[in-house]
Design a protein around this nucleic acid. Sequence first.
RNA 1: GGAGACUUGUCCGAGUGGUUGAAGGAGCACGCCUGGAAAGUGUGUAUACCUGCAAGGGUAUCAAGGGUUCGAAUCCCUUAGUCUCCGCCA
Length: 421
Amino acid sequence: MLQVNFIKANREEVLKGLKKKNFLETSLIDNIIALDDERKKLQFELDERQSKINTFSKEIGQLMAKGEIRLAEEKKMEVASLKGLLQPVSEQLNVVEKSLHDDLIKLPNLPHTSVPEGKTPEENEIVREGGEKPALPKGALAHWDLAKKYDLINFEIGNKVTGAGFPFYKGKGAKLQRALIHYFLDFNTEAGYTEYEPPFMVNEASAYGTGQLPDKEGQMYHATADNLFLIPTAEVPLTNIYRDEILKEDELPVKMTAYTPCFRREAGSYGKDVRGLNRVHQFDKVELVQLVHPDKSYEVLEEMLLHVEKLLQSLNLPYRILRLCGGDMSFTSALTYDFEVYSAAQEKWLEVSSVSNFEAFQTNRMKIRFKADGKTQLVHSLNGSSLALPRIVAALLENNQAEDGILLPQILHSYFGGGKI
RNA sequence: GGAGACUUGUCCGAGUGGUUGAAGGAGCACGCCUGGAAAGUGUGUAUACCUGCAAGGGUAUCAAGGGUUCGAAUCCCUUAGUCUCCGCCA
């Protein structure tokens, strides 16, 4: 959520940013400014009237104490009429505050200056590439065929037991999941991230805090009996740990990592993009979250980028890094880098990580602040995947397939208990 | 799931209708004292919003929300959480 004062002080800049982000409902801005002015006026009026009532009430107390009942009764009458004036102002203020808030949460975050113009994924900017695309033998198989051949993942049983998009991992397939999760977590904790195992369901306030609600409500699984949401990413529980907290400056940066399954309804997805592991409803992911001093967030973003890049390099996967264009970025992000790995048998790039700086957009909603020199201000939040497993698994299987098996990268051998599937 | 007790500031804790945003203590910060430290001592120490150039002033907040009242931390209702006992259970 953008800060009203910022919008007021930087109207032109905000409008430019929204345009870059391909957000067209720009009339909201002037609406918000007008509503905030209205809010201030009403607040002032309300405070004044309340103040008068408070003064009178105190006087009544003193009169009662002195036994001057009649005077006290007269005052009571006066206060009663003042209260009549209070209520309409208070109601109006509530209405204005609600409209203001409703408008504010419709505004996406503003893009960083380095975000390229553009509306579609094709306009994302390739920052750099790394690794080598393998030359696969003739008749190389896609991961869904490899999964079947080596009995690693069973999609059909998943369909039967739960539904489409809920695969079973089996045998070495299951063990590979465990090995990857274990390795990723170790890699992150060695870099100073604190490991968490959070709940896999969150309440409404948390889903709202990180921005899943209200605009992505249909994308989450909702356990209505208890009004809990299955997390679409560990970012939600992790970031919400600090909701409504004021940190000390020396507690920053807060670096957290967690493995969780992620649940996504993916309503509206279809076709070949959803084949195999390309898009599933439940998948495993290890996530990184940082809460940092606002002056440091872009420095930290680059640091996280390098961190994820090193992780991918250690897996020997061909990858590329994209800087997302304004129109392809998420609602909450100010700057996002996507990592894609090359899936050699499918001959396409698969997104495996998204590293973003949200600046104060999330923390303004969640009121995550820090105090320095007596002043309280919002921290910046960042997150990134390290990594999402299914597409990593797809690429590992496809890119490393050989005549007699799949050869895993060296780094996984100790975690997997062997080098070959 | 049933019965009961409870939820106050960074922490402990007082407070059952009237200058209580909240006693007292601890912690923390700054100063004094000291060769230095400890002890002692003085001062300060919540958040949000409104107003003001500022100093300051005002409003709200004692789990959350609502209600009663001229006035609520204190009374009533709803919700959440904590603890104890019982039940159930990986």
